[in-house]
Simulated assay, not measured.
Amino acid sequence: MEESKVRARRLGTLGIWAALLVVVCVGVSYFVTGLLVRNDQSWEHDEEQGHHWLHQELALTPSEVVAVDAFEPDYHRDRAKLLENFNAQIAKLRGLLVEKDDFSPEVNAAIHELHVVHGSLQELSIRHYYEMMSVLPPEKKEKLRKLAVEALSEPE
């Protein structure tokens, strides 16, 4: 009887940790991928905290705007696909947390699948940052670098 209580407590604790992991993964992903754009699927220059804000912060010239914006369509298309996959993985893990009473191989696999997609989102955002860096003059590269470091330094 006592052993079953200990096991139930351990499973409950494990479930809490797994749920917390999901929350942390979601938060980190949205923070990192939202570094330069908002998290919705559409993109417009006038989005709150979108590229319009970045253009102002960097005081981009018209030719720099054209150079930076050349990367946007591919980035937003790839990001939308990854976010769709990420949300599907979250839904899958959420379902497993509801239906499974213990840390099963399916739960473990779902967590690892979520990490893979999360890593892909992070990589895409960082690659996009470097694409923008590649077309900016030195003083604006430094400003973008400072903005990125500030954004990554603020807890969300």
Rank of each mutant, 00 (worst) to 15 (best):
E3G: 02
K5V: 07
A8I: 04
L11G: 00
T13E: 01
L14R: 02
I16C: 02
W17S: 04
L20H: 09
L20R: 04
L20F: 15
V22C: 02
V24A: 07
V26A: 03
Y30H: 12
F31K: 15
T33P: 00
G34S: 10
G34K: 11
L36I: 12
L36F: 15
V37P: 03
N39H: 08
Q41W: 09
Q41A: 10
Q41Y: 11
E44K: 15
E47T: 10
Q49V: 08
H51M: 10
H51Q: 06
H55K: 13
H55P: 00
Q56P: 02
Q56A: 10
L58W: 10
A59S: 13
T61G: 00
P62Y: 12
P62H: 09
S63M: 10
D69N: 15
A70V: 13
D74E: 14
D74H: 07
Y75M: 03
H76Y: 12
R77H: 13
D78W: 04
D78L: 07
D78R: 11
K81S: 12
E84G: 08
E84A: 05
N85D: 14
N85P: 00
A88Q: 09
A88L: 12
A91W: 07
K92S: 10
R94A: 06
L96P: 06
L96K: 02
L97D: 02
V98P: 00
K100Y: 04
D101S: 14
D102M: 06
D102P: 01
S104L: 10
P105V: 13
E106C: 12
A110N: 04
H112C: 04
L114S: 03
L114C: 05
V116M: 03
V116S: 03
V116W: 05
V117L: 03
G119W: 06
S125C: 09
I126N: 01
R127F: 01
H128F: 13
Y129M: 05
E131C: 13
S134L: 08
L136T: 11
K143E: 03
A148K: 11
E150T: 14
